[in-house]
Amino acid sequence: MKTKKEIISIKDLSFVYQKELILHEFSLSVIKGDFLGLIGPNGSGKTTLLKIILGLLEPTSGKVKLLSKKIGYVAQKAGFASSGFPITVEEVISMAGGKAKEIERVLELTGIASKRKRLLNELSGGQQQRVFIARALLHKPELLILDEPTVGIDSEAQNKFYELLRKLNREQGLTIILVSHDLDTVEKKVDKIINLGKR
């Protein structure tokens, strides 16, 4: 029987911003291989929690222990995706470094190999998100964090998107934390739900 390896351990985490309590004594344990949905309405502290996990914010109190430094991150909406700047799929991915062989691997893995020479702004919202996932996967992360990845994407593309995440979770053993405000959709797609709104 496999031993369950903890990948993130958060204990009694609190975060105060401009005298407002955003997170209060929040605890969470993420196990390797988890496909976790972190949900809650706007202002519930989801993005704050992500930024603390990613090391972009310091908690006011509490402990955050990351047992893997190999983290891939897909932001809520990459600003340049709809900017009109001429940047190809390959260029977006290679920004993060990596050799041609590695870039090829993530292009295949995310199913966008045929779009490599296309401009990012010519792709649909769902395809653009695949590009950002491909970039996040370049350095073989153990944990993939996605912040509201399906905002502005139609339901068919959303289904395909969740299929890709499920494939990465099962076949690659990737631990996934997905942040969303859409409880109805996310609870059908992930294995565990943490609802920040109920805290």
């Binding site: 990613l54 700047f85 920004m95 470094g97």
Partner: peptide, 10 residues
Amino acid sequence: SFDEEGAKLS
């Protein structure tokens, strides 16, 4: 230049 936050995390 394209993605300051993403670059920082990289």
